[in-house]
Design a protein around this nucleic acid. Sequence first.
DNA 1: ACAGCCATGTAACTCGTTACATGATTAC
DNA 2: GTAATCATGTAACGAGTTACATGGCTGT
Lengths: 184, 184
Amino acid sequence: MSQDLPTTSYALLGLLTFGDDLTGYELKQRADRTLRFYWVSPAMSQVYTELARLAGHGLVSARDAGPNKRSSKYRITAKGRRELATWLESEPVEFPTLKHPVALRLLIGHLVDPATTIGLLRDYLGSLAARRAELAQVRESLRGRDDLDQPFHHPSLVAEWGLEYFDSERDIVEKLLRRLEEQG
Amino acid sequence: MSQDLPTTSYALLGLLTFGDDLTGYELKQRADRTLRFYWVSPAMSQVYTELARLAGHGLVSARDAGPNKRSSKYRITAKGRRELATWLESEPVEFPTLKHPVALRLLIGHLVDPATTIGLLRDYLGSLAARRAELAQVRESLRGRDDLDQPFHHPSLVAEWGLEYFDSERDIVEKLLRRLEEQG
DNA sequence: ACAGCCATGTAACTCGTTACATGATTAC
DNA sequence: GTAATCATGTAACGAGTTACATGGCTGT
């Protein structure tokens, strides 16, 4: 029965488990707010492709709302919920993948002068702070709906995890930067 | 002059800047040891594809060594070094991408019982420790070749960054786990 | 002789992206 | 009226994977 879909498909399906029905467009917005920080934010076109696939497997159902067959809302089906729970329990869970262009550039730092590397890391600290602020705003927006029995309890746990990750990354890079500045 | 290759291509090219010439096979091994932790470890077939592309752009040169036209070693060219330095200085550097299947599953923890989520995180702590041990071994293997002016100075900085990341991730997950255990 | 590793490559395929096309609704 | 946003989709492409095919070299 287990369908074995790509992970992004399960991720989008998961975003439909919070008690509301969404259009493809709205689903993309939710992905931009949450999924982006620890998975990917799929392109608009892929959201529609995935919704069509999920509907083909009977994991979501489409319901027309607007007058012109537009704005159809998607709802997760009972089968979709079972499928998601099975996926969640399936072993083994893949190890996280990190694609870190900054670390990658630091690796070949011997090709350029130290000032370039230092500038690279300073820029990174800036974008890290900006990204952290975005996530902090998301976390704040869940306040009041994040109690133990409320739908956004787990999303808020994940958001807090992300904030701690950003803080730790900042600390590590700051320390590294001090080290490079002393050498250079 | 800037070629604008995929990042994996620059990454593999970067692995050829440490003073030795490598066969495709050896390059794959080096990627498995280092690149894997903060980028990806490309499939064997892709390594050969990328080497062919790099050679086509004149960024690496192939030199036959074996009798049967096999075991040809690849060496980065002067043009390749210039290209890499340009890439390193190019702005802006992309923000890291994290694909975190564990966080993704935690997000929809409301679909399963707490024990499942707790088990998931415990498993993750285990694989995290294993991965950290692998990286620690890599870092140790660089000792003696990691001084300021030596080729593996920057790789060792990156490895230490990775070790600190793993430690921080472990701390965050352990705290989260305690929180879930108290609730459940 | 056989296993296991070294070594290279092609073909088919999936995932996901960007570019493009189209049109409705809302706010000013 | 017109710009911005809402909304949905198709087509072409690129990056990267798995499966497959091939054969040499090394140790026991």
